[in-house]
C-alpha cells in the first residue's frame, strides 16, 4: 500500500496504482487515471461503463464479468473494447476506483 497524488488529491493505492479506498475516488481522479492508461477523454459512453461497474460492485461486492456487463449493463463487448482497448475490464476497473480483476494468487 502506498500514497499517490492523482489530480491533486492524495489517495491510497496498491503497488499497481489501484485505489484501495473507494471513498477517495472522484471524477477528476478517474480522468487522470484514464489519461495514464492512454484514454485521452472520458466520454458519456465511458461514464456509462464506469457507472455500471460502480453500481454493480456496490450491489454484489465484486467486479462484474464482461458477460455480466453485456447482460445486465447492456454494454456490448465491441463497444467495451473500443472504449477501453486491450484489457477493457482491467482499465475500466482502475478508472472506476475499483480493485483489479484477480485470481487468488
Amino acid at each position: 500500500m502506498a500514497e499517490k497524488v492523482i489530480a491533486g488529491f492524495t489517495v491510497n493505492v496498491t503497488e499497481e496504482g489501484y485505489l484501495t479506498d473507494k471513498t477517495q475516488w472522484n471524477k477528476e481522479i478517474a480522468a487522470e487515471i484514464a489519461q495514464e492508461l492512454g484514454i485521452e477523454e472520458l466520454t458519456n459512453a465511458h461514464w456509462n461503463v464506469i457507472d455500471f461497474l460502480q453500481k454493480d460492485y456496490a450491489e454484489t461486492g465484486k467486479l462484474p464479468t464482461i458477460r455480466r456487463m453485456k447482460k445486465e449493463g447492456g454494454i456490448s463487448t465491441k463497444d467495451l473494447y473500443d472504449l477501453f482497448p486491450e484489457g477493457p475490464l482491467v482499465k475500466a476497473a482502475k478508472i472506476a476506483g475499483l480493485s483489479k480483476p484477480a485470481s487468488c494468487v
Binding site: T14, E15, E16, G87, L89, V90, K100, P101, A102, S103, C104, V105
Partner: peptide, 16 residues
Amino acid sequence: TPLSGAFTKPRASAVL
C-alpha cells in the same frame, strides 16, 4: 488467460 498475468496478487507474484 483473460487476467493480466499468471499471478495477480503482489506477494504471490513476487515469490512465484
